Computed example of a mutant assay.
Amino acid sequence: MNINAAEFKAKCLKLIDEVAATHEPLVITKRGKPVARVVPIEDEQPRGLFGYMKGTVTIHGDIIDVPHEPWAAETGEEDDLYVPLLTSPSAKP
């Protein structure tokens, strides 16, 4: 919403209450050019940790029926990486 400075001066308190209620910014003009903007203050209360990311996740595909892919621990394909750790002098059985 746009309003000229003279009208804003006359209705200042009412317009501020309207901005607070509608959360719509108000642009104040002087000779047709914008000079100031009155905007509502955002909620400054910190949100709790529980649920603060609600609505930010998108699920793609089926999360219940996931195809099984064997882990390296199941197949033993990375066992050679641990041999130096098992044979070092500091390794305790």
Rank of each mutant, 00 (worst) to 15 (best):
K54I: 03
E77H: 12
W71S: 15
E69C: 01
A21K: 15
V35C: 08
N4K: 07
P46C: 08
K11G: 12
H23I: 03
L81G: 02
C12Y: 00
P89H: 09
A36D: 07
G48Q: 08
A91C: 04
D65V: 06
E69S: 03
K54D: 14
Q45S: 14
V39Q: 10
E69W: 02
M53Y: 11
A73P: 01
S90H: 05
C12G: 07
R47Y: 04
A20N: 08
I16A: 00
E42D: 12
D79N: 10
P34Y: 02
I41E: 11
K11A: 12
V38I: 13
E77G: 13
E7D: 14
V38G: 00
E24L: 05
F8Y: 13
W71I: 05
K54W: 03
W71Y: 10
A73I: 06
D65A: 14
F50G: 04
A36S: 10
G48S: 11
A72W: 12
L85D: 08
A6P: 03
P25F: 00
E74Y: 01
F50D: 14
L86G: 01
M53I: 09
L85V: 04
L85E: 08
D62G: 10
N2G: 08
E74W: 00
R37F: 00
T75K: 12
I3M: 05
T87Y: 06
V66Q: 11
V39L: 06
D80T: 15
L15W: 02
L86T: 01
E42R: 09
P84V: 09
I63C: 04
S88V: 05
P46Y: 07
